[in-house]
Simulated assay, not measured.
Amino acid sequence: MSPYDPSAFPPFAVTVDLVVLTVRHHALCALVVRRGEQPFQGRWALPGGFVREDEDLTTAAARELVEETGLCVAEPGAPTTDPVKGAHLEQLATYGDPRRDPRMRVVSVAHLALAPDLPAPRAGGDANSARWAPVDELLQESEGARDEQSAPLAFDHAQILADGVERARSKIEYSSLATAFCPPEFTVGELRRVYEAVWGVALDPRNFHRKVTGTPGFLVPAGGTTTRQGGRPAQLFRPGGATLLNPPMLRPEV
């Protein structure tokens, strides 16, 4: 093995950024925090932080998720009985533009986290405040913005958020990931509203019911009903064992 000199290569830092998505008031929302320190002090940003020396990437992302939201990572295939404490977490993409952070060369490994309707967030770390915001609001162009709420996200977080939203929109077409936005037991109507919020389209209730109940392994009856949505009692379901949907739930063309 040829000699290796670590000092021959420039040092750089590694961070994890989190695209945390949930459905609130029938809208797809993302968690953002107001930065309390430079750079971009006072601007909204995705939650995240630097990877510690003794951490792998998944551990760092899970730690930041707990610190910023109080959420733990749900075990794959094992729905939590407490929907506020479990979240689906997966690696999204890596971002390494040399100029993405004005402090130094920083490479970010972004992660996507999905969870059911979540309570008001709490700020942590170097964040002054935190809020849930509709993704459409966060991703809109900032030209002509009238207030700081609509200012562009810090760093390259608008691009990371857009990539995370598109990942979620595409994955619920061919996987059972949409159930990660639902409580452990849910109605077909509640699941339909998840699809409508993530895709940003209205779906025909009868066609949707026929597709999801007719897709093998997607849903299984939970053995009960609920009237929490008003009207007649609706049957409750749980996620089935299927992770890939066949046939897929294709996104309507807008």
Rank of each mutant, 00 (worst) to 15 (best):
A222P: 02
S7G: 02
A168T: 14
F218H: 01
P247G: 00
P216G: 06
D147A: 11
C29Q: 15
V165M: 15
A93T: 09
H111C: 13
P116Q: 07
P10W: 06
T15K: 12
K171I: 05
T225Y: 13
C29R: 14
K85C: 08
W132E: 03
L177Q: 12
A242D: 05
F208C: 03
V220H: 00
R131G: 05
E143H: 10
D204Q: 09
E67D: 13
S142I: 02
D54N: 06
Y95I: 13
T227H: 10
P79T: 04
V33E: 10
E75N: 12
L203R: 01
V66C: 07
G49V: 13
G217P: 04
T69E: 00
G223S: 08
R192M: 13
A133C: 14
F181P: 06
A27T: 04
V106H: 05
F181S: 09
Q91N: 07
R52W: 02
A145D: 09
P248W: 01
G144D: 01
A151D: 14
L219D: 02
P3L: 06
G48C: 14
V73N: 02
V254K: 06
L219Q: 04
G231W: 13
R35A: 05
V188G: 07
L203D: 01
V84S: 13
P102F: 00
C29T: 15
R34L: 03
S170G: 03
P83I: 06
D117Q: 11
P216Q: 08
V201T: 04
A87T: 09
N207H: 02
P3T: 10
L65I: 09
A8Q: 11
L31Q: 07
A110I: 07
G124M: 00
L244S: 07
R193Y: 10
D5R: 06
S142E: 11
V73W: 10
R167M: 14
P184Y: 02
Q229W: 15
E148A: 03
L236Q: 11
A180Y: 12
A151Y: 14
V212D: 03
G86K: 01
Q41Y: 00
G230V: 04
R228F: 00
A197G: 14
Q91P: 07
E75P: 07
C182E: 12
F181E: 03
E196C: 01
R43K: 14
T243I: 10
E55Q: 14
E53T: 10
T243F: 08
G164Q: 06
G49W: 11
R100M: 07
